[in-house]
């Protein structure tokens, strides 16, 4: 009787470990998810800093190098943490812009896998962008 219970216990633990690892993915996958989280979070702070709301007569910078510090907003990473490439900044017109990053994982996978924000714009490949419009009252 107790032998059966002990074997059942081993099976149950094996199932929990196996299914658990299968669902969450291995260490390499976890690292990529974490990097993508960092990229998306970087895009958010970078966009806030570029938009720099509350500052009158502010003009959008022409390129990432021209981004001036914005009081009240923390400094943001302007470079991809892994490839060290700068994030892609595009000034769309006088009042709007977008910042983009290339993710390691396909952002179109179901949301239960990746913790992505709702305001992300999905582009071709693994590229995601955050767009801001100066006249938006709810830009984030």
């Amino acid at each position: 009787m107790n032998r059966v219970l002990l074997i059942g216990f081993c099976l149950m633990v094996a199932v929990a470990i196996g299914a658990g690892l299968w669902v969450v993915g291995g260490p390499g996958y976890a690292r990529m998810v974490e990097q993508d989280r960092q990229r998306v979070s970087d895009l958010g702070t970078l966009a806030d800093r570029i938009a720099c709301k509350g500052q009158s007569e502010r003009k959008l910078p022409e390129s990432l190098e021209d981004v001036a510090p914005c009081p009240g907003y923390q400094d943001s990473n302007q470079h991809d943490p892994v490839t060290n490439e700068p994030y892609r900044y595009t000034k769309l017109n006088l009042n709007s812009f977008e910042v983009c990053a290339e993710l390691a994982l396909d952002p179109k996978t179901p949301r239960r896998i990746l913790p992505f924000k709702n305001d992300l714009i999905l582009r071709g490949g693994n590229i995601v962008c955050i767009a801001r419009h100066e006249d938006d009252t709810q830009s984030d």
């Binding site: 929990a16 658990g20 179901p110 949301r111």
Partner: peptide
Amino acid sequence: LVIVLQVLVDLLFEEDGYAVFGRIRFGV
């Protein structure tokens, strides 16, 4: 063991479960 199995059950039923991945990793 209970936590890992329960979280796995939750993932069967709920779509948005990223936050519990850490609990599975710790439990495992």
